[in-house]
Amino acid sequence: MLRFIGERALHAIVVVVLAATGAFFLMEAVPGDSAASAVGPGATAEQYQLAREELGLDKPVWTRFADWVGGLASGDLGNSLVPPNQSVVELIGNALPVTMQLAFLSIILSLAIAVPVAVWSAYRRGGVFDQVASIVAFAFISVPSFVAGLLLIYLLVFNHSLAQQLILGAAVVIGLAVALSPLGRRGGPGSPGVMWGRALIGGVAVGAVLALLALFLPEFPRQGYVPLADGLGENLRSIALPAITLALMEVAIFTRVLRTDMISTLQQDFVLSARAKGMPTRHVLVAEALRP
């Protein structure tokens, strides 16, 4: 284990060094002058020369590279050239909490949606629910995040009532897909009456949840981030749309990957053995097939 960790750490160091070196020399190859950008078009020759000295642009490239590596090693990332000229470390520190919260919420949201959808799609492979889930997943994958963000802003910020109507329509469609899912069932325990009864209850439950979501859909702010210290509710309301935007594509990817793995796992001998022993469907899907 220690050897494995050491090899991974060594690989990571090599990757970081190569990436940092490539980033430095790529920036050197970019057309333009950092000193001219810093002082602006109306600066005098003296101001321009002073800016070059302060930025170290009057030194040879290898000297600048050595100074830059030394600054990275000591935690000095320099200052931003875009007014207001702040420390890069300060800029990263201000953005890092928001970035971490967005990443955490989007992953949790995508897994909370993708896992049950993928498990049920694999169990009802080829059925109505599986086909609808596949169409939605491919649609999410096909839409870039920046386009999805604009659509969400258009619907949930500027057209709140239209968004509620669309969610109600989705509640009907998805509820019917769940209720009709036994049409594509391939074997499995349970009589047809029990099977249809469970599907009907599941369809009604899913439709009811989405309908309640449409009725109690909050109004989201147009812009701005509310820190967590100002209240959990306002914080989540301000960060919900970015988190949903990031989660949409992840939901589609997780769903497709997990569905494929679940279909293969459900054919394994230990799952077939659990079915032969009369284990409940929930136990077979969650405890036997999903866990590995």
Rank of each mutant, 00 (worst) to 15 (best):
I141K: 03
L57G: 01
P227Q: 06
A199G: 08
I13V: 11
F129R: 03
L10K: 15
R291A: 15
F138W: 14
A287M: 10
G224E: 09
A118G: 10
P292W: 11
G40A: 08
G126Y: 13
E219C: 03
V204I: 15
P84S: 06
G207D: 05
Q131N: 13
L111P: 00
Y225D: 08
A137H: 00
Q49R: 08
G75I: 12
S264M: 10
I5D: 11
L55P: 00
Q47K: 04
E90D: 14
G78T: 07
G193D: 11
P84Y: 07
A179M: 05
L228I: 07
F158Y: 15
P116N: 07
A208H: 05
S134Y: 01
V173Q: 03
R185I: 04
A122S: 15
N235R: 02
V172A: 08
S121Y: 13
A38R: 07
F254E: 02
P218Y: 12
I92L: 14
K277N: 12
G207S: 04
R124C: 01
S191D: 13
S273E: 14
D67H: 10
L210I: 11
F270I: 14
V119A: 15
G169A: 12
A114E: 04
H283L: 14
Q49F: 03
P242G: 11
L210P: 02
L217F: 06
F220L: 12
F104Q: 07
V30E: 14
A118K: 03
D76E: 13
A252T: 09
F138Q: 07
V14F: 09
G32Y: 06
E28C: 07
Q47M: 12
V173P: 00
A12S: 12
A274S: 12
A274T: 10
S34A: 15
L77G: 01
V16M: 07
S273V: 05
S34D: 14
Q267P: 00
R275V: 14
L151F: 15
D67L: 04
L50P: 00
L91P: 00
P227W: 02
W62G: 02
L272E: 13
V39K: 03
V286A: 15
A118H: 10
R198F: 08
L10P: 01
I201K: 09
G6D: 11
V128H: 09
S264V: 14
A36K: 12
G202D: 06
L215N: 10
V39Y: 04
F270T: 10
L290I: 12
I239F: 01
L26Y: 12
G75N: 09
A171L: 13
A23R: 02
L228Y: 02
G202Y: 07
L77N: 04
G231H: 02
S80F: 06
Q165R: 03
V206M: 05
P292E: 10
F216T: 14
L290Y: 11
V143D: 05
T44R: 06
L72G: 05
L210C: 06
P221E: 08
V17D: 03
F158N: 06
L215F: 08
A289D: 09
F104P: 00
S134E: 08
F140A: 12
